[in-house]
Design a protein around this nucleic acid. Structure first.
Lengths: 334, 334
DNA sequence: TTGAAAGCGCTACCAC
DNA sequence: GTGGTAGCGCTTTCAA
């Protein structure tokens, strides 16, 4: 590291005390215009760069938000996963606009205090939890004592922790209804069973089918989470079927895209023979061909809400959870 | 923030001095087994969490690496862009494995000292620069004074800064040769002209065509960087053509995927009527359909090399730049 | 083996 | 308006 001058040295050169320099540069407190000018000029000529760490240590404000990704032992969700990627990108964008940095940490929960330990390490002003994995109990318990925390996820009645997320059940219904409208009657639901919102989405699908009087509930196929593995799973499962579904709902966009690939490999046309809808609304879905119809969780909005809410909680405000309305984005795959 | 006990308080409770507690917990320095056991037990029972900031302040080691993304005024590259996304994900993975965190900061270069200012802020042990934008001069100048910095990008003879990147010219040649082998004779190159490695890749393409005796150099089309805009550009440009090329090289995977979409919209089959090859090797390319043939820059390897190299530079070692061999990944689009 | 004390660079408080 | 001074919580000499 190049060692620039520190505040103390600056004070010596200016012939004042550190306190005066601090006030002059920060603009807080009273300093005569003359000395202020002089100090500012000196600081610039010496290319003075304040040590943010020291400042943080005094002010206890890091201007940094931590993004924690708990890795359940079986959840092989890399930081490079498309969903997480997209989310962290949006969050980074939102934070950057507000002058905050993003500290990304992948953590393996070894005890029930991993969140607090992290928060107490003094490196962040607040935390965002993405991907609850199997840590819901810890999150809920932590929320009773640690305020500046916002979680990406759904809400359960009576829950204390602040969550921002989309209405997965409504989204599931929406997806099913869309396929029904498109004429599908033999509908399948495919994705990682242990995935975070799998259950609620499937519930919605089931409910919509029941409402529509489609006796045949969705066939459910469990795949891996990771894209390449999901593709293999889809290929094997769909390939082995006596009768191909005419509509497939992916539990996520990543899954749906894998399904489309598998169908292509099996010689089935999309949306001609099989219609496929995803869930998430990743920008990625727009790029693939056929472009993916999906239930859009509005992740950009979600990221903004998480950041806004977190900053308010950091300021001591009490905030409630928020449910984002999922939206159908109709593209080419249905 | 929940205020746990600090080291001083721990020392009081243990009936020793802070220094002793520090030595006992860090394992450095000599402490009798008995006191060590006692202190460790106490720390655990009180759920003592050291303040990493304070530690950092003394040791001057943050265990954090900064990833800087300079945003040139015209470069509309969000942190949520697929390439950047993928790269940051891989980097985060590699750092996490080595016990380092990743601090992502998007910076708008206002002067020629933005890198040093950031590095001197004391929050990171080293920096990774992704996407040089138009900041090559600053990067090179900084490298003369600031060592722990690694840049994603190519090498020029005489360059001082440490760069990890793939051989774009070789990659361009590889892409062109592949299309030639596939029988293409009317080849186009398409992408953002101001993109970082556009020039070198195009050079390689030109060279390979010349070598093969294809008199007709590639038609070059300039598109936007951002996916949606690139799609519109491709649609307009290709749609207006009297004769459609039989092979298209995208300057990036994102561009190539947009091209495939545009071709589908124009009723052209891929790879039947037009063959398309991308550049990058994003995992994304495997997901789309037809799966994208591409020149793989081996970003995961690149991320690992960047992290390894940076850590070595942080340790004071001198390291050279490294060129990654691009590889042809042949999938369905050619 | 342990204690005492200095200090990382900054801010904040209280005098003057 | 400015100076002096006391820390933030930790590590690391130097003595004892």
């Amino acid at each position: 590291m190049i060692k620039g001058p520190n505040l103390k040295r600056l004070a010596e050169l200016a012939g004042v005390t550190p306190g005066t320099v601090s006030r002059a540069l920060s603009g807080t407190g009273r300093v005569s215009d003359q000395t202020r000018q002089r100090i500012i000029a000196l600081a610039e000529s010496l290319e003075y760069q304040p040590n943010l760490l020291a400042r943080t240590m005094r002010t206890r404000q890091t201007h940094t938000v931590g993004m924690l990704v708990p890795l359940g032992h079986d959840t092989l969700q890399h930081l490079s996963d498309p969903f997480f990627n997209t989310m962290s990108g949006f969050v980074a964008d939102e934070l950057a606009e507000r002058g905050y940095d993003l500290l990304i940490s992948r953590v393996i929960p070894r005890d029930n205090r991993w969140i607090e330990n992290y928060a107490n390490s003094g490196r962040v002003d607040g935390v965002l939890i993405i991907g609850q994995s199997n840590q819901l109990a810890v999150i809920e318990a932590t929320s009773l004592r640690y305020r500046p925390m916002v979680v990406w996820g759904g809400q359960v009645s009576g829950q204390n922790h602040c969550a921002i997320g989309s209405d997965n059940r409504a989204g599931g219904m929406m997806a099913a209804r869309h396929l029904l409208e498109r004429g599908c009657r033999n509908i399948a639901f495919l994705g990682p069973v242990d995935g975070p919102e799998f259950g609620a989405r499937l519930d919605g699908v089931r409910y919509a089918l029941a409402l529509a009087g489609v006796s045949q509930g969705p066939q459910v196929f469990s795949t891996h989470y990771e894209p390449a593995a999901a593709f293999e799973d889809a290929l094997r499962m769909l390939g082995g079927l006596a009768q191909m579904p005419d509509g497939i709902i992916g539990a996520s966009d990543v899954t749906a895209i894998s399904v489309i690939r598998a169908l292509a490999r099996l010689g089935k046309s999309v949306p001609g023979e099989v219609k496929v809808i995803g869930y998430d609304g990743l920008p990625l879905g727009e790029l693939v061909s056929p472009a993916l119809t999906t239930i859009d969780q509005q992740l950009r909005l979600g990221a903004r809400l998480m950041v806004e809410t977190l900053l308010r909680r950091m300021a001591g405000e009490a905030t409630g959870s928020k449910l984002i309305e999922p939206r159908l984005v109709c593209r080419e795959s249905t």
